[in-house]
Design a protein around this nucleic acid. Structure first.
Lengths: 214, 214, 214, 214
DNA sequence: CATGAATGAGGTTTCATTCAT
DNA sequence: GATGAATGAAACCTCATTCAT
């Protein structure tokens, strides 16, 4: 009861700095969770399987460090999103044109996928299994929506700048997201898949789909 | 034994024509399953929830009519695929050009989605939660793969015919599938979504992505 | 509710002579029960398995013809005991000396076993799984006890006649019974077992164990 | 995982020494299982009854400590066999002649039966309800067969040494085993039975049946 | 007579969580 | 901090039985 430094509680309490070992345990559990989810899927990733994969002797350890399954998943999502941020931002901002930025955004996902094959898979699994109404997971639906809205905004700018042709930005952004996620999931089940090649293909595909035909 | 006439067994046995009421109960359970899956997802769709939704007094009734969860899901998939077949084939074959056929194929999905909003959602949920290694569900992975292969073949013909530009047909077909499925899942959670409009947008999107630029 | 002609009820009612087809059905079910019990054991012989083995479409048929599981088992026991009676009595009464009668009694079991391999197995399974306290099965415990008592009486006569040496007749009779039953059960699982040879061996064994040493 | 230290797993893992309390609970459950089986038989000994008898609040506790019903039964068999070993070996090796050894072997069973009336009953119930084909229980069939083979070997030596007369050792050993088991089962249902007396009777019986007549 | 759908109890197992040590 | 035993709910499945047709 005492140590329960869930992500949320840390933010609200603020002053109880987590000890080193606790941070280590949390990270260890998060890492194991990512691997288990990537391998057997979100719903079958029980505490028992995660504890086993992490080399923990009991599931109680997980309940001790996380305030329930949702809290653990929140941490996983946060971890992967932070990681993804590092792959996207620099790549995107290195370009001026919106077409180049779109390509960079797409290919950034596949760079991440190549380096951390299981992280994106876990993220896609978790977000893909969300349903509205799970209290405690609403945060993620909002986060996801916000992310998409940012991309929509960029696309709109590209359209106003005359680089992109006329289309519904929401449909386009979601189609891109869905196509990427599909490759992510397939990659975890078929290790031989050439993700970089698939990334280039998708970048080309959506380049043609968005480019203004003079 | 008794009602245990699973789809497979019916085919192999052949002569035991299912009674009207039995067919009725099975259909009723399948219908309830589709609705429950569409509402709360594949993994949370327990026999208890399905029985409740179907107005049955016990989960034993489902076990009585179906040879386990996999058998029930097989029936759902078969039902929806048969339904989908009716929406696709005629629309596609009504056109000559491959570009028109691609558009028809995409929009056929959305016609089906508009008429039976939950059927496609259930299908996508089930197939999206499959993992290789589930014995008894391998059939569906094969079916899905076969379906995609057929579409890949059509795309290849379009390329050879000079209607489509040069791209990896597998990546394209999967991107189309993923984009459609994404709309399907969103539609079940947001009833206000204009699925026909989304369908036209996607058809336009992939038309631009595939069309040969003169 | 109407036809329910269980064995017990027939005796008490008396006047409703069972129709030919009903007798046939009952016999068919009893035969199937014997085979199923011999193959998979008393407790695993569910109505479902019996109905399947009998070619019946539902377990309801069994409940219709028999007043529950106990009633069915009663019929099986009665059937096999009647059959066994025919193998024993004549063989035993063909001899004068008690040593010869004992041998005949033992070998009679193996003649029956050779002719109807599954009947004795079913009997042994049922009786071997009885526990005092099952109401409705007490009859069998009594029957079994009575049978043993009869054999005990014969043995006592043999002792008084000076053919048998001095031993506890109950222990002897039960040991004989147990040894025979053991072969019966083994025979159902090992079809290659030479039951006649085993029978002769047991007859010799208990001949030496009972014979008066001059 | 967690307590799941089944007998087999302990041996293979080796290094995870079970905690005292865990060993205690396992032993407690095994003890309760022995008593329940002795009272109501192998097949009716459900987890619910065992948990109730052990003072546990749920059947989940048993699944927590044992890897399924088979694992629990394995532990019971192992426990009783180990116990039986202690009663047999010393008694047998205290004698030189094979006739004396045979008597000691038989009477050792009844000493054990007198001290632990339910242990042997549970063992006989479990082994007597085995069928070939239960995967996971094959080990016991092998063990049983091996035990019998050892006894057969001793009997053969006695025959070669001229102490025993000529008979099929397998039939003899099985008859002895069956006769003992019969008393064991009867003893659990009739507490007034004088097991030592029955043991002496059986020892005498098989002494006469095996002894060489000068 | 026969059918087979329906029922409700009971079986084992897995799950996330709590708590004493 | 860490452990792992304990808990109770919920999952799927099978059983014997009943009953409308």
């Amino acid at each position: 009861m005492q140590a329960r430094n869930s992500a949320g509680k840390q933010k609200s309490a603020g002053k109880t700095k987590p000890s080193f070992t606790e941070t280590g345990r949390r990270a260890q559990i998060v890492a194991a969770t990512i691997e288990v989810i990537a391998e057997i899927g979100y719903h079958k990733a029980s505490f028992a399987k995660i504890a086993q994969h992490a080399g923990l002797s009991s599931t109680g350890m997980i309940s001790y460090h996380f305030d329930g399954r949702d809290d653990l998943m929140r941490e996983v999502v946060t971890e992967v999103m932070t990681l993804a941020e590092g792959y996207s931002r620099a790549r995107i901002e290195a370009h001026e044109s919106y077409t180049a930025r779109l390509r960079a955004a797409i290919e950034g996902n596949f760079d991440l996928l190549a380096d951390y094959p299981k992280h994106l898979a876990a993220l896609v699994e978790i977000l893909g299994n969300l349903r509205g109404g799970d209290p405690g997971m609403d945060f993620f639906l909002d986060t996801t929506e916000t992310n998409l809205a940012l991309q929509v905004e960029q696309v709109r700018k590209g359209q106003r700048a005359g680089e992109f042709c006329d289309f519904d930005p929401w449909v386009m952004v979601r189609a891109i997201r869905a196509a990427i996620d599909d490759v992510v999931l397939r990659a975890t089940q078929d290790p031989q898949l050439d993700v970089r090649a698939a990334g280039r293909e998708l970048a080309d595909l959506f380049d043609r789909a968005t480019r203004r035909t003079s």
